[in-house]
Structure formats: structure tokens, C-alpha cells
Amino acid sequence: MIIKSINTQRLGFAALFVCIIIALLVLGSLIYFIFSNGISSFSWTFFTDIPRKSMTAGGVGPAIIGTIYLVIGSIIVALPLGVITAIYLCEYSPKNLIVNIIRLSVNNLAGVPSVVFGLFGLAVFVKLFNFHVSILSGSLTLGILILPGIISASYEAIIAVPQSLREASYALGATQIQTIGRIVLPAALPGILTGIILGVGRAAGETAPILFTAATFYARTYPTSIMSDTMALPYHIYVLMTEGTHPEVQKMIAYGCALILLILVLAVSGIAIYLRQRQRRKYG
């Protein structure tokens, strides 16, 4: 009986191990594939120049900058809105049916296909508000796209802050705002940071929401203001792979773009993980 259960346990561990290996292999081969194909395009001009000779030469500078602008813009839109919403839901709202409906809606919003956000952005920001196809419209659209994620992450982080810390703060004569600002939010910061990382990754990689709201096929210059349209890495990859007359050359440039995108997202994750670790080391 004992031997049998030990064997079952070994089998279980083996199965888990195989699953991990498969997952790591998929991830590893993806990174290897992108890296080995993309690295050949890398050069100083590739990062700084504009595309030349119908996208077979030059660089993708405007697309890199465009993506960075869009990511920053969408975080500026989504972060305050998301965190404040989460604070309201956790700390201020009465715990009743309406709040549950709001939370349910937020969670459902996270499941809406991104192209639907794109159409919404086109209808509201581009047309109704007359922001045209621009970084502003794209940032707003991407911001709304990542908003549910930021709200959920912040909500979970804030609700997980022990009630005893709030009580300690109130008992020392703190107001609710002081308690939230000085105790609750700093304690929830690691969780909120996680939400931001996921949001950055999504905003940087999404194509559909910027298709009608921000992205342009080709730009001869860097974007000059938030009202200009812009190239962006994911859309540029799409263009490289579907348009043009030199598919083989363009394919390699597309891999180069994919690698930049990967590095950008990993860099942001890295910074966030570093910040989180530092916070934990300091007060863990």
C-alpha cells in the first residue's frame, strides 16, 4: 500500500515535470526563433532610420518611438483611472449589489475582443471627439483596453492589504485619505505594478485597437505631437508580412521588429520586477 502510494507520487511528479518542460520548451524555442531571425537586422540605422526603398532598407525608428508613445499614453490614461476606480470599489463603495455588478462588468470588459475596442475608438475618439487618427486616439483606445486589467490587479492588491493596518492608522488619528495614501497604496504597490506590467505588454503588442485609431502604414518622419498618426511595431510587422514586393527581405525586418517588441516588454517587466523585489527586500 505504502509502496503503491510512493509510486503514484513519483508518477505525479514526473507528469508535472514533463508539463513544465513542455511549457519551457515552447517559450524557449519562441524566444530562440525570434532572436536568431531578428538579430541579423539589428544595426544602429535599424533603430534610428525611417524605412527606405519600399521597406526593404533603412530602419524602423518611427515604429519604435510610436510604440513607446502609445504605451506611455495608454498607461497615463489607464493607471490613474484604474487605481482610483479600485480604491473606490475597495474603500468607499458600500458593499452591495451595484458594486458587484460594477465588478462583474469590469471583468467582462476584459474579455471583449480587442478589435471591438478598435471600432469603439474609431467611433468615439477619432470621429465623435474629432481627435483624428492620432497618438491621442490610439492611447485612449489602448488605455480603455488595458483598464479592466489594471482595475482588477489594483483591486486585488488593495483588498489584500490587512484590515489591521488600516485600523492601526485610524487609531493614530489618520483620516481615510491619509490611510489610503500613506498605508494602503504603498502596501498594495507590488500588486499594482504587476497590473502595470501586464498592461504594458498588452498595449505594446496589440494591433487591432490601433489599426483604425493611431497607426499609419508608413511615416517619413518621427511623430511630432500627440495629434500625429504614427507607425507602431505590431502594425508594422503586419504590414511587412502582407504588403510590399520583397517578401523575403521584409520578413527578416519583421523578425527584427518582433525582437525589439520582445525586448521592450521584457525590459519593462524587468524594471517592475526589480522595483517589486527592492520593496520586498526593504520591508519583507
Binding site: 493596518l165 487609531a171 493614530l172 488619528g173 483620516t175 504603498p186
Partner: peptide, 21 residues
């Protein structure tokens, strides 16, 4: 109530220091 709580301090069942220095 803020004034009151400055006058009347409280120590809780479980130690609850803030995650600060």
C-alpha cells in the same frame, strides 16, 4: 473623531506595525 483618536490611543490584539521602517 481624529482628535478623539489622538487622545485615545489603541494597541491591538495582533501586533500591526506598518510595512515601513
Amino acid at each position: 473623531v481624529v482628535e478623539l483618536r489622538r487622545k485615545v490611543g489603541m494597541v491591538f490584539q495582533k501586533p500591526n506595525p506598518f510595512p515601513k521602517s
